[in-house]
Computed example of a mutant assay.
Amino acid sequence: GGLAFGFDRLCSLFGGSESIRDYIAFPKNNAGRDVMLDAPSYLDQSQLDELYLELRKPEEK
């Protein structure tokens, strides 16, 4: 047993969401794996292109 405040459930009710996952601080995927476990990781160029981001090295002084 345990006692939980249920703030995420309360927020999902007031927010009108069908899924509580939108309000959970550290959600797991369908396999029960933390999606941020491997973060930070290297980004593929396709991911950067999708977000219109460009990485540049800082200028040396």
Score class of each variant (00 low, 15 high):
Ala25Glu: 13
Gly32Ser: 01
Arg21Ala: 07
Leu51Thr: 05
Ser12Ile: 01
Asp34Lys: 12
Phe7Cys: 09
Ala25Gln: 11
Phe26Asp: 14
Tyr42Glu: 12
Glu54Met: 12
Ala31Gln: 11
Leu37Ala: 15
Asp8Val: 01
Glu50Phe: 15
Pro40Ser: 04
Tyr52Arg: 12
Pro40Phe: 10
Gly32Ile: 00
Lys61Asn: 09
Leu43Glu: 06
Lys61Ser: 13
Asp49Met: 08
Ser17Ile: 00
Glu18Thr: 14
Asp22Ser: 10
Tyr52Asn: 15
Asp44Lys: 14
Gly15Gln: 00
Asn30Gln: 12
Ile20Leu: 07
Ser19Glu: 05
Glu50Pro: 12
Leu37Glu: 14
Leu13Pro: 00
Ala4Tyr: 07
Lys61Ile: 14
Asp34Tyr: 05
Tyr23Glu: 04
Gly32Asp: 02
Gly15Pro: 00
Arg9His: 01
Asn29Val: 02
Glu54Gln: 08
Tyr52Trp: 10
Glu50Leu: 15
Glu60Met: 10
Leu3Cys: 04
Ala39Asp: 08
Arg56Lys: 14
Ile20Asn: 10
Ser17Asp: 10
Leu53Trp: 04
Gly16Met: 00
Phe5Ser: 10
Leu55Asn: 07
Gln47Ser: 14
Glu18Gln: 13
Glu54Cys: 12
Cys11Lys: 07
Asp34Trp: 03
Ser17Cys: 01
Ala4Lys: 07
Ser46Phe: 07
Ser46Asp: 05
Leu51Trp: 09
Pro27Asp: 03
Pro40Met: 05
Asp49Ile: 06
Ser17Tyr: 01
Asn29Lys: 00
